[in-house]
């Protein structure tokens, strides 16, 4: 009985928090503008001398994230190699 009451309280708290967060979000389809977006669009070409703003974000402003993606691919290759490598027990 006590566990059930605790469970109900936890559910109410989680629903309340999510409802509060959802009611403050942008309306659907209206993203709004953040100062960071304007900064990238105005300064990327001058600061990094690159025409493609998306590439300047991916490889320069957020380069550390791309390093993580490369590490993910490396881990995938390692796991495939470990899974599919032939053992020598059959010989």
């Amino acid at each position: 009985m006590k566990r059930r009451v605790l469970f109900l309280v936890a559910v109410l708290v989680v629903v309340g928090v999510f409802w509060g967060a959802l009611s403050r979000i942008h309306p659907f389809g209206d993203i709004g503008r953040a100062p960071m977006d304007d900064y990238y669009l105005e300064n990327a070409q001058q600061e990094r001398s690159v025409n493609n703003v998306v590439t300047s974000i991916v490889f320069d402003y957020r380069g550390f994230d791309t390093l993580g993606e490369a590490a993910v691919l490396f881990t995938a290759v390692c796991s495939v190699l470990a899974l599919f490598r032939k053992g020598s027990e059959g010989k």
């Binding site: 001398s49 690159v50 300047s56 490889f59 320069d60 290759v77």
Partner: peptide, 21 residues
Amino acid sequence: NSAGTISVMNIAVGLEVIGGL
């Protein structure tokens, strides 16, 4: 011939993805 290390990193990531996949 522009964009500095962005070009270098594009080529590096390209090599890595070719090899990995």
